[in-house]
Design a protein around this nucleic acid. Structure first.
Length: 204
DNA sequence: GGAAGGATGCACT
DNA sequence: GTGCATCCTTCCA
């Protein structure tokens, strides 16, 4: 298997089921080469955001702005935006062009470059919680909005590879999404997924 | 030019 | 568990 074959293919992202993709992304590996330094982690927590019908989604009701334009692109892109003026949040665009589905990566378990991650996060020692949260993992991996729109299949700065094994259904916990109380009834959708009993998760 | 946000994080009890 | 700092970007006028 060559280096590039480890990456998830376009066909993984282009499926018309963002909830299923969010679930399957658990256990996969996310890589970044910000500033030429390789860092990576296992995805431990995700949330699904489903296009124009989802009140929590930035593309709700077909809202199309400069910021959300990336979400409408074909699956397999990175959608990165700034939240609270401080935190960069990393999403994976799914489905085909025009649908605006995306999966938010909420937490990872660090693999490569732990020393760099500690430095970027301004920590003294390593802790599994260092990347347990969407703002935290972006900071740890050096993800910023310059990577918005990057193609995860061909990019040399950010990409996702297959994991070492496939998680069984009973290894996944399902819960409500977080921080979207404004989304009314859609705030109760069980579209958040995390690896059961994993310590690198933002909220239990 | 300016108002308003906002898919959080952290400190504190 | 709860409170609140925060602040750059976005979007519209």
């Amino acid at each position: 298997m060559t280096y590039k074959d480890k990456r998830l293919p376009n066909s993984f992202y282009e499926r018309n089921d963002v909830v299923q993709i969010a679930k399957e992304l658990l256990g996969k590996k996310i890589y970044s080469r910000a500033g030429g330094i390789l860092t990576s982690g296992i995805i431990t927590e995700t949330e699904a955001y489903s296009g124009t019908n989802d009140k929590a989604c930035h593309a709700h009701l077909g809202k199309l702005t400069n910021r959300t334009a990336t979400m409408y692109e074909n699956g397999g892109r990175a959608y990165i935006y700034l939240c609270y003026g401080i935190h960069h949040l990393f999403n994976v665009v799914t489905n085909v062009e025009g649908k605006a589905d995306a999966v938010l990566i909420r937490a990872i378990e660090p693999l490569d470059g732990k020393d760099v991650i500690i430095k970027r996060r301004n920590f003294k020692i390593f802790t599994p919680k260092i990347t347990a949260g969407p703002g935290k993992l972006s900071q740890a991996l050096g993800i910023n909005k310059n990577m918005n729109g990057e193609n995860l299949i061909t990019s040399s700065v950010v990409w996702i590879e297959i994991g070492d094994y496939i998680l069984a259904e009973d290894e996944i916990t399902i819960d409500k999404r977080i921080g979207i109380d404004y989304a009314e009834e859609d705030a109760d959708l069980l579209w958040r997924f995390y690896i059961k009993e994993n310590i690198s998760v933002s909220k239990y």
